[in-house]
Each structure stands twice: as structure tokens, then as C-alpha cells.
Nucleic acid binder design. Structure first.
Lengths: 333, 333
DNA sequence: TTGTAAGCGTTATCAT
DNA sequence: ATGATAACGCTTACAA
């Protein structure tokens, strides 16, 4: 059933040898114009399409890059992916996308799959609980870029946003709005991103002469539900706070939900700032004030950095690209 | 720089021939247990990883499927993709994802890329303005599945949801809530989905003895902005309506935004029903009543249908799988 | 039980 | 200007 037209078929019907066909197809100089035209015509008539798998074997290059995300349906990742795919397409690369579902074993498996498929490069957002597989990635010869997280010892090129500044901006804004007791609903601290935003938070507090107290910082695992129930719990416990800086917009959405149900007015009673500026941030109510990051750009940058490594003959020293963030002011704070 | 351990390297260090290595690796019976163990150990030590590109060439099968979407960052597609990727991974397939950005030329180009890469199957959500490329897909020997849309003459297997029922459910619900003049903010009618939902809308009207009038149906192009401004325009024009059925949740979000700004109370003054039940539908305000479709399931089903075609020796007759929808009741209607 | 050789589709090298 | 052949990594007859 599955049978493609090969260079041999074209050669046969055009009455030439296979490498004359190859020459015509690749627009090589040493071929008669007439023959070339004829071969090209025959190729078209027969519906010939170059076999990329043969080329991959031949050159040891696939023109495929692998992307490994924890969850491609997360609006953050799905936008980043768009940036990657866009740039990849422009450069004649295809992209294989795999999800790890935050499972370390799946992540390892995904890396093995990418190696087996001989992808020319890998863009990965590693689960940071363990990182042997990243060490491993750094040692094999496939160019790789870490996206969205920062490792202390820079083994691989990285692209991420300036999250210390982001945390600072969010907190400082809340303070400027007159908030004194700012709750930080953070992500789990094994994530560099969470640690960086926390650092920015503390920095803003210090800058404004507000004393830090850890009774106002909480770490929760991913998901709206998780943010919703934590906020509810805190509210019920009688914790006193008038501002909230959420690790991401998804947390903010859950928190706002809980706040409203509890009868708090936003931002009059409690101001809320999120992070990421996912596309729905402006449609929730009140419209979310948040730290905006250019996700498409982050994806594009990651691909471009990867492409540099791929095209470099020698191993290129690991670079860290830190993208700017800015605060987008809306109604929640 | 890029150099992988091959079966030959393993053979050399283990002191056997290459196909003895192949036998060991593939767990064939005709090999000495001892040799097998040794080969396997050497392979592991050397870090041997099977070269999938070589296998692809050898077998004429890549174990890769291609997915072509108009926009993978759209929450609908990103969830569908998750279902596809999940099932693909379970079955040892990798997935190449490409976006067309609703550009027909890009769509054609994407198909060519998939053919060139010799993917074993294609899942595509075609732009329906033109469809020669789908005709083409039906004629080549790569198994393909159409996702989310329905073509009149069934050339290829299809997976989509029961949108006539969806349109009916939404409209009927609004009527049962006492609404008489229900505005339909529909997608462009070259899309089968829009036509189906429209059909359901009319059916519900008829069933409830309400006369249809085309001054209440409008077709707009994709995007929140587009829905927002159309709604605004209609409101300003003084059009009388007390209910709104939106083609999708994104439209509903834009519409609600406009409605609120205009001072309409939802659902007291105007009830709104959306479509898709994207994950943020429940967090907008008021929480959106919408037609829910199981997007993960839709993706999984598409992959499974594709797998059937791939595994079938002979060309399998095109089937149409229609998935159920249900109404999810929240606050907006 | 093990090894040799052909072949998958292509391009590069070397002849002619 | 064109053709024959080897090679990419692997599996599968077939031979030993």
C-alpha cells in the first residue's frame, strides 16, 4: 500500500541514471539544461517527493528538533511552542513535541526517544526535582537548550525570563498601591523560577522598608484548584493580608475565585498580581494585573539559540539569555 | 561533533559480527545466551542507542505521525493535541506538530513536509476555504484523519463532535430559561462546524415554536476582539435580544466583555452560552455556561482511528466518528 | 550459533 | 555531461 516514487522510478521513466536525476533535483551545475528540464518534468508527473529519512541517514542530520515540555496544553507552554515552531519552520526544521506530565521517568524516556530519532537538537523544560538526565544531555553530543528554568551550574545554554525583576516589580507595585502585608503564593521552591520570584519579592520588601515575615509566604503545587484551596484555607485561618502576589496567572485565577467567595473585594480589600500574562488574564474579572512575558519571543529565542549550537562546528560555550519582563496594569491591583 | 555509537562499534568491541549484535539487541532466539549477555553489556557501556532513521529507511515506516493545526496555541487545539500525543506515546509513535496559521499555502506546505518526512499518518484540521489538498491527501497512500470538521463527501476518516446537537442544546436551554430573542454569534459558514451549530440553533427554535429571523444571526471571524466589537456594534445599533449563543467560548468571552461594558447584567438581562468548555470558562465572570466537549478524548480518538488505518493492510473505508457533547451549566445563562 | 551480503533512498566520489 | 559505485545504520535472507 505504502509506496513512494523514488529517484530510481524517475530515472527509469526519464531514461537517465539515478544520479542525473539527483543532479537535476538538486540544481547542480554539471547537467544539460534539456535533461534537467525533462527529469524535473517527469519527477513532477510521477509525484516524486524527496525522502527525508534517506537524507537523514545519509547526512547524519535529520532537520528535526525535539521539544520536551511538562504539559503542552498549559497556555504558557502552548504559546512558547508556537514561537519555536514558527522559527523552526522558517529554517526548514520540523518539531517533535513530547509531554512529560511532570513525571521524571517519562522525561528520561522522552530524551531517549529524541536521541533514538537522532534529532539535531533538543529544547527542554526540565522537571527540576532530579536532574541526572540534564547532566546526561550536557554530555551527549546533541545540542540542547534549557527553557524557562535556570540551573546553578550552567551546563547547557538557557533561555528564561528575568524573574527576580519580575518578582520585584509585582511586589513593589503592590507596596506602591499602599499594601503592607503581601501574601506570596509561590510555586514549589525546587524550581529555580519560584526561588527567583521569591528573591524579587524580598528585595522589594527590603527596598521599601517592610519587614519580611515567612508567615506570608506559601508554596503550593501546580494548578488552579491548589491555589483556590490554599487561599480559602488561609482566609479561614484568619491570616491578615491586603495584597497577594501569585506565582502565575493560574494561581491568581484560583485565588481570586476563593477571595470572591469569601466576600473580599478586589482590589479594594485585597489586591492581586499574577505572573505570565496568559491570554485570558485580561478577561477574568477583575482583569488581572500581571507580570507579562513575551512567550512567543521566548520560544523563538530558544530555537535561535539552539540553531546556533547546531550550526556551530565546535561545541559552543553555554550561554544564558535572560528576557525582560514588564508589569501589565489592569484592575486587580 | 555529532557521532553516535553504531552497531558496528558494538560488534568490534564485543568481538562479534554486526548481525550478532543485531540479534542480541532484538532478542532473537538463534544466539548463544553468553554472547547475547556480553553484547548487551558492551552496548550499554558504549551508550548505544538504536538509530530510528536507519530503521525508517529499512522498513519504510517511521513511527512518526504528523499533526497539522491552524493554531496549536488555541486552548481547544492544545488540549486535543495532548490527547493525540498521549496515545501516540503509548503506542511508540512520535508526533510532529505544525501550524498553518490559517494560511492555505502553509497548509499545503505542511502536507508536503509530512510526506517528505514519510510520516506513517496525518491528523489534520483543514482550513475549509479550499480543499484541494485534502482531495490530494485522500489520494496519496498516507493514512489521514480529519479532525474537528466534516466534509460533505466523505473521502477520509473523520472525528468530530455532534455539533448539531450542541447547537440545539445551547439554544433550547436558553429558550427554557425564558429567552425569546436569541442572538447567534456564529463562526464563518464555510466551516462545517458553524453550519452544524446553526442547524441545531434553528432546530431548537422550531421545536419551541419560535420563528427564525436572520436579523439575529451574525458570522464573524476568529478571535476575542472580533466578538467583542461585533457585540458592541450590535448593542449600539439598538438590536433587541435577551439571549446569546456564541460559536465558542472565546467569542463568549469577548461578548461578555462588551455586554458588561454596556451595562447589561448577565444573565438577568442577557443570557450567554458558549461552546467548547475551555479550561478558563469556569473562571471568567460570570462563570460560563457552555457546551462541553471532551477534547482529550477527541484527540485520543483521532489517533486511534489513524492507527487503525496505519495498521490495516488494505485501505480501510472512511469512517466518521461523532463524539457526544453535553451542556455544562454555570452562571452566565 | 555465527558470519556475509544485499537492500532501503539518497548523494558524493570517481570514472568515462 | 553522464554513469557506476560506495556509503549512511540497520535487518534479513542465506551461507557456513
Amino acid at each position: 500500500m505504502k509506496k513512494f516514487v523514488t529517484i530510481r522510478d524517475v530515472a527509469a521513466t526519464a531514461g537517465v541514471s539515478i544520479n542525473t536525476v539527483s543532479r537535476a533535483l538538486n540544481d547542480k551545475p554539471d547537467i544539460n539544461e534539456e535533461t534537467k528540464k525533462r527529469v524535473l518534468r517527469v519527477a513532477k508527473e510521477l509525484g516524486y517527493v524527496r525522502d527525508a529519512t534517506a537524507l537523514s541517514l545519509r547526512y547524519g542530520l535529520t532537520r528535526v528538533v525535539g521539544v520536551i515540555f511538562e504539559d503542552s496544553s498549559n497556555p504558557f507552554f502552548s504559546e512558547v511552542f508556537k514561537g519555536i515552531e514558527m522559527k523552526a519552520r522558517e529554517n526548514g526544521f520540523s518539531v517533535i513535541l513530547m509531554n512529560t506530565e511532570k513525571d521524571y521517568n517519562v522525561e528520561e524516556e522522552a530524551i531517549r526517544t529524541m536521541i533514538s530519532r537522532r534529532v539535531d537538537g533538543i529544547i527542554i523544560t526540565p522537571t527540576q526535582e532530579m536532574s541526572q538526565d540534564i547532566e546526561f544531555l550536557a554530555n551527549i553530543s546533541i545540542p540542547s537548550v534549557i527553557l524557562g528554568v535556570h540551573f546553578d551550574k550552567l551546563k547547557l545554554p538557557e533561555v528564561h525570563t528575568d524573574d527576580v525583576t519580575g518578582g520585584f516589580l509585582a511586589t513593589d507595585y503592590l507596596i506602591k498601591k499602599g499594601r503592607k502585608r503581601i501574601l506570596l503564593l509561590n510555586g514549589l521552591s525546587y524550581k529555580s523560577v519560584a526561588r527567583m520570584r521569591f528573591e524579587g519579592y524580598k528585595k522589594a520588601l527590603k527596598n521599601n522598608g517592610i519587614e519580611f515575615t515567612d508567615e506570608l509566604v506559601y508554596e503550593i503545587s501546580e494548578g488552579v484548584e491548589s491555589a483556590y484551596s490554599k487561599t480559602k484555607e488561609l482566609l479561614l485561618s484568619g491570616l491578615d493580608f491586603d495584597g497577594m502576589f501569585c506565582f502565575n496567572d493560574i494561581f491568581a485565577i484560583g485565588a481570586i475565585q476563593a477571595l470572591k467567595e469569601y466576600g473580599e473585594r478586589i482590589p479594594q480589600d485585597i489586591s492581586v498580581v499574577g505572573y505570565d500574562d496568559i491570554s485570558y488574564a485580561k478577561y477574568i474579572s477583575p482583569a488581572l494585573t500581571t507580570i507579562a512575558i513575551d512567550k512567543i519571543l521566548e520560544g523563538q529565542t530558544a530555537f535561535e539559540l539552539l540553531l546556533e549550537s547546531i550550526e556551530a562546528k565546535a561545541k559552543v560555550p553555554a550561554r544564558e539569555i535572560v528576557l525582560d519582563v514588564k508589569l501589565t496594569e489592569r484592575r486587580s491591583a
